[in-house]
Nucleic acid binder design. Sequence first.
DNA 1: ATTATAGTTGAATAATTGTTCAATCATTTT
DNA 2: AAAATGATTGAACAATTATTCAACTATAAT
Lengths: 119, 119
Amino acid sequence: MQKGKEICEITYIDRKKVSAVKKRMKPETTMQRLAETFKVLGDPTRTKMIFALSLEELCVCDIANLLGATKSAVSHQLRILRNMKLVKYRKEGKMAFYSLDDDHIKNLFDEGLRHVKGE
Amino acid sequence: MQKGKEICEITYIDRKKVSAVKKRMKPETTMQRLAETFKVLGDPTRTKMIFALSLEELCVCDIANLLGATKSAVSHQLRILRNMKLVKYRKEGKMAFYSLDDDHIKNLFDEGLRHVKGE
DNA sequence: ATTATAGTTGAATAATTGTTCAATCATTTT
DNA sequence: AAAATGATTGAACAATTATTCAACTATAAT
């Protein structure tokens, strides 16, 4: 029996394998940012927004109409994408036209798409 | 002023652009699965687990030790990854050895890694 | 100037989710 | 058969989060 945090460090650990993996493990901050990137893409609304913006530059109203969402909801999500540097925007009068910040993210997106389509 | 759901379908929508995007939009189910895939990768614990399993076949206890997490927490997350067909396992005695289900997911992961590393 | 509209923002709410705890299952060892 | 251990599971809890609502800003048009 164990006491306390019950972190598994008992008998059947293959210490050689574990320490080998530990050595090759990416830094904590890298993993955090990687997880965060995936998380941002992991919401259906944002997923669709990214896809739409990969096709066309669109204003907030366009996106809202496209997704059947309120402008407010879209604007909130756009801020998240902006903070993550995934989208950029250009102001023209009262309107804000959004587009992907780089098409680097497009690669990631397409790789994901290829995955769900099963190869 | 508008009433009701306040879905933006008013004046300044570029209907041509919007309907063009709508036409090229992937089916709802595809988008849902894509979002779900990203979401699963979007948790630090699972991100690390995937990475570790991309290097070595590991048992639950190894993973728990590696991440400093409880067996229970790891097992819960492994079930999620199993359900998404991202990992598979093989039983040997009382132990369960986990590995990636296909290395297809590895591509997606590496593309993400390339992204956070800035190119 | 007043009105209308595109967009943003903060607070509140509801839903989702990751971890812990305790109990349980299954297999091995004594 | 009993004890020990790797693993799984369900319930409970805390934290996070997506959406809504209302208020607000800024620009444009009358």
